[in-house]
Design a protein around this nucleic acid. Sequence first.
DNA 1: CAAAGAAATGTTACCGGTAACATACACACG
DNA 2: CGTGTGTATGTTACCGGTAACATTTCTTTG
Lengths: 348, 348
Amino acid sequence: MSLKNVTIYDIAREAGVSAATVTRVLKNSPSVKDATREKVRKIIDVHGYAPSSVAQDLGSGNTKTIGMILPSIRNPYYADLVSAADAEARARGYSLWLYQIPQEEKITAGVVGNLIARRLSGAFFIGSFVDVDRPDLRLLLDKLGKYMPIVAICPPRENLGFICMYHNLDGAVRQAVRHLNLLGHRRFAMIGGAEHLEDSGARALSFLDELRILDLPAPPEYGHLGGGDPSAGQQEVLRLMTRLPKEQRPTALLCYNDLVALGALHQLRQMGLRVPEDVAVIGCDNQFFCPFTAPPLTSIDMQTEEHGRSAVRELLSASKNQSATIVRDASLIIRESCGAKLGWQDRG
Amino acid sequence: MSLKNVTIYDIAREAGVSAATVTRVLKNSPSVKDATREKVRKIIDVHGYAPSSVAQDLGSGNTKTIGMILPSIRNPYYADLVSAADAEARARGYSLWLYQIPQEEKITAGVVGNLIARRLSGAFFIGSFVDVDRPDLRLLLDKLGKYMPIVAICPPRENLGFICMYHNLDGAVRQAVRHLNLLGHRRFAMIGGAEHLEDSGARALSFLDELRILDLPAPPEYGHLGGGDPSAGQQEVLRLMTRLPKEQRPTALLCYNDLVALGALHQLRQMGLRVPEDVAVIGCDNQFFCPFTAPPLTSIDMQTEEHGRSAVRELLSASKNQSATIVRDASLIIRESCGAKLGWQDRG
DNA sequence: CAAAGAAATGTTACCGGTAACATACACACG
DNA sequence: CGTGTGTATGTTACCGGTAACATTTCTTTG
């Protein structure tokens, strides 16, 4: 209706007081006479006035806004993370500013400028794209780190110069291998993920080491990972099940994430292979659809929501250039896709 | 590193010019001598300076920020919408500010104040929770509408006093019914959604009317909808298949969304009912997992991404209190869950 | 070579809050 | 009745940009 927003001066004028008094009323300062307070409150209510946080931010130098830099909110894992972080942030008077940067997009100076310009209270850098091989990303992080605390929610990394949070999959991966081995599986494969990703690598080490401990053969052609979406799962299953001689085909698949597992399950079904009788499948992230796949998907739970909440707490108590590493353990959630029937208990 | 952000005055001082000249350099004004321009540019680069958008926003009165009010980003439909909107917004120099309000949360004056305080360029109000029965929501929308243009992405509604975008499911629902009827189905049910939701109602009307046209019986007990997540699908299937006498049990299920369908598929499987041989299932939203369910889920495609992009365009060309209704048609995507085998074409 | 005009740069005020400081007024007390 | 001590309120400057206007510094030309 009004072309211009109502300001504190409009309220002050109408109440016949100064702007400072209006501020005092807004801040519940005790040094305002009751009559004045009531008069000002009433006018504030009539106009539905709320003080501009833009002006407040400029004055205080604190925007109470957290940047969320991630490849895409469509990935359900990121959505879970962001949702939990948003709730925690709002409870603390902060809010989230979304900034998607598609995985394949090169980060330009303009993007860096955008992020710095916002004068954020801090930023999350979420995604498997934290990658030292990409100079544009290093540059973004280095520049951003000069202006605000950064928390990277990313694959395991060495000291990056800021807070780095990731999931420790070692125990869960080893447990998965042992569990499947107890059920009789001897030929394993990991599918999905990208070769250069640190977290594919870390879990691969646990995986291979556990195979070694159990004296099982390492999978042939290991290392062809192929992506993080359902089509990657499809393609990898197709490749493994057609290109390998029958006696070398894996009977147990550890998938990079649940999306990959979804594609794998689908491809196995199409090829007439039964899960878990012919092939066992395990996913990762324990996403909402895991209990509803056919068969229900065994997965590795990452405590995603707690991770997101804790990330906000860390960020808000951090200062610029603070460096730390926070690791959250993951746990195996056993469902039917790895051979257990409902009610089956893990003996591994 | 530096405790204080670099300002335009720091740059100006170091370059031996005035702040206005630095602004001119930043804005590529032609009336700056080349030598000056170079000198200033270099100092800007050294410091990684970018002008504070907080200050710019205050000066210009335009934050170029769009509020995203929605129940939860975890719902993949909303995530798709937000992701597309974010890309479109950024391409136009705008960015998104996330504000989740859980469905069941009462909207307080504090929330309203928060949203007004941000001096947003506009706001999206996304979700099935646009509901006249909730006075807190009406109040929020009425107050917000005084300050910024609003686009509601919501179920079909009468004139709300702002731009309202929704999906027209009429054609797709009728097509689904005809398609299933051609395959021999005579007993239909809709499951999921909430009784009071306008969009459940709208599609229910199309559904019931098409049944009438085809001279098919209306489902018994229609109206018990039960929610929008997989567990709702599970429960509704359980209810329909156990509480109804066998000859009244539906053989074709239209689900409120794909999440409900996921739960329905799972429950049917658990009960030993085959899809599509015994029961046909159709979802809605055509989410990423539809091609990968068992069997692949027939669904109604909402053009979600185009909807999100177009919403941004509408919002940015709208003014306060502008009222309009924008309807996007949906289309049926036939997969195997409704009886078609791969390659089957719709003859309806 | 001076005046006119263009080009380059500087000065100022404002956007909307807030905190520090200043001031005004009431009442109590010696 | 002057002074002191609160209490209630007003004034001012600043946060970091930017646009309008003012001013200085060149060119150009009669």
